[in-house]
Every structure is written in structure tokens, then in C-alpha cells.
Amino acid sequence: MRQMGWRIINSSLHVWTQRMINFDHFEILRAIGKGSFGKVCIVQKNDTKKMYAMKYMNKQKCVERNEVRNVFKELQIMQGLEHPFLVNLWYSFQDEEDMFMVVDLLLGGDLRYHLQQNVRFQEDTVKLFICELAMALDYLQGQRIIHRDMKPDNILLDEHAPEMFNSKKEAGYSFAVDWWSLGVTAYELLRGRRPYHIRSSTSSKEIVNMFETAIVSYPSAWSQEMVSLLKKLLEPNPDQRFSHLSDVQNFPYMNDVNWDAVLQKRLIPGFIPNKGRLNCDPTFELEEMILESKPLHKKKKRLAKKEKEMRKCDSSQTCLLQEHLESVQKEFIIFNREKVKRDFNKKQANLALEQTKHPQEEDGQNNRL
């Protein structure tokens, strides 16, 4: 009996393992971006044919740059978030080389790309973007999360609306910093440059002094209502700055906004990205195929070779690195939003079924009485 019981448990465990999402469940279509130790590509899930963006981060580089904890923190935060104006996490998994995050795909490109293409956004479009981003910030604020890095580079477009990427929780900041960043972003979208002139060589002390003393200029072509809103968002004193969704909603300039329609993405902005082409730098694809020393499409062969090599630790440094990589392997957070939603819906259906059963049971008891 014990042996038979073990077979049943082992069999179900095997089936569960088979269902776990991994690299083989996706087809790699093309590379669309890169960071210091991570890259992003477009993928298609084999069974559903749904397309996503897949961010993958090299474990060894993360260990060497002491970034593992930050990656884990980002994963942990993104698992608990879901909102129409956030880039939502769908799956996270790993292999011996990389950690993977599969998120919503937005093919409209980021706002920095469009600014570099000399797009000048009209005031009505920026007004809608402010509304959408304010709702995203309000959601994050409700989750006690400070984004801390809102800028055109981190605001992505789909065919209808912008969404924010890379939520980060940081100590030492108040929520007001995100609303100030919203003001800076809106200003740059309207004017094509930031309200402050900061160079890479500018010291932190000079920057702080600049924010407190600099006079931001507003072109006369802008409406007074937009200028007044931007001044409230760019207020140097965080206690006097707009830092809640209600501040923006109650501002007279927003009286004509249907906020339910904003949340449901029913409002169409004046600027819609070109659907006929990919809105990103094409050199990412070229680098991945030609210059990349460890291209994604050759991963299987590389991992098989690496496994043989890592069996023999030829130096203490190699062994230490291997220990760190094994630690990452154990502590990595696996996530499947599709499964979470399926389990939730199943639970809700069971609850509904139970609720329909109880009245019948009570009727039966009354009849017996």
C-alpha cells in the first residue's frame, strides 16, 4: 500500500512539474530592448498563441553586480499588482543561466522613443496621459509602493494608453516624489525637453538647489489651466504639491474628464503609435543575432555544455560563484498569473455552488419538521 501511495503522489507531482511554465513554452520572435544585465524580447506562448514581452536577466551578472535581491524584490512586488495602467507580470521562471519575467506586451514603444522621433504631443493627449498615469500612481499608493522612476523611458504605449513599467519600493522617499515626476514627464511631452537643465556632472547638492530656486518657464501657447496643473505637480515643497488622485480629479481643468471611461480605456488619445512597424530601435535585433556572445536561440546547446563544465570546480572562485548561483536557483520566486486566475475562478464557482445548495438543504429540514 505504501509503495502504491508513493506512486500516486509521485505521478501527480510529475504532472504538476510538467505544467510549470518554462522557456520551452514560448517561441522567441525578436529582441526589442536591453539593460545593463537584462534584455527584452517579444515571445509567443505556444499553446494560447498569445504574445508577451519577456525580460531575461543573466544570473551570473546579477550575482557579480549584487543585484539579485533587487530582482527578487521586483518579482515579489509585481506578483501582487494588477492594474490597467501597469505592465502586469504573467509568469516568472528560471533556468541555469537566466531569470525570466513574462509581462504584458505593448507594441507602441516608450515615450522616450517617440520624443526622439520628434513627436510633439498635443495638450489634450498629455491631459489624458496625466489622468491615466495619475490612476496608476493612485493604485500604487494604495499598495504602499513608491515608483521612484517615472519618466518617458518607463512609460510604454499600446494602441490606446500609456502604462508604467518597473514598480520599485524604496525607503527614504514620500509618495509626493512620483507626482513631481509626473509633472516633469508631462512638461517634457509638451515641450520636447525637461523643465530643468541637469548634466551628468551636476552634483546632488546643485540639483537640490536648482529645484528650490529655478524658475520653470511655460510657453505662452499652453493653456493657463495646463500651466496651473503643472505648477501644482512641480511644486518644490512636497507638502504643498499635488500628491493624490483626488487632487488631480478635483482640479477645475479636469471637470470634463469621465474617469470611468479613462480606467476602461474608452478614450482615444490624439497620438496613436504607428501599427505598421515596431516602435523601437531595430539595432537590438541585430545585436542579438550577430554581436551577442550568448544568443537566446542557442540556449539549449549552451546549457547542455555548461552542465558538464560545472560538474568540476577547478578553483575556489568558481566554486563560490556556483554556490551563489545555486542560492539564486533555490530562492527564485516562480509565478503563473494564468494559474492564479484559474484557481480563483474555480474557487468562486465552488462557493457559488455551495451557496445554491444550502437553501435546498434548509427546505428539506423544514419539510422533515
Rank of each mutant, 00 (worst) to 15 (best):
S246W: 06
L128D: 04
Q329M: 10
A176T: 02
M57P: 07
M99C: 13
G364Q: 15
R311P: 05
W222R: 06
P252H: 04
R144H: 15
K49A: 01
Q76G: 12
V257N: 01
R144T: 04
I333A: 11
Q44H: 00
K300E: 11
Y173C: 07
D247P: 04
V227C: 06
A161L: 01
A171R: 14
Y218W: 04
A352M: 15
F251E: 11
S243E: 07
F93P: 07
T283E: 13
H83R: 01
A134M: 04
R7T: 08
K61S: 14
I290H: 09
G172S: 02
A134T: 08
S181L: 05
R148I: 03
N237G: 02
V262L: 08
S204M: 11
P162N: 00
Y139V: 07
D260S: 11
K298F: 06
K205V: 11
D124W: 01
F344S: 14
D239N: 11
R2K: 11
M226T: 11
R7V: 10
G364F: 15
H147W: 06
M150V: 13
Y113I: 03
N209C: 11
T213D: 05
E123W: 03
H358A: 12
E188K: 12
R30P: 00
F344I: 07
S228E: 08
V248T: 01
V43D: 00
N279I: 00
Q116N: 14
K34S: 14
N350R: 14
I333D: 12
K300H: 12
K232S: 10
G270Y: 06
R342N: 13
M4H: 11
R368K: 13
P238H: 05
H160T: 13
K308L: 08
E188C: 06
E285N: 05
L320W: 12
I130N: 05
F37H: 10
V208R: 12
N336V: 02
I207G: 09
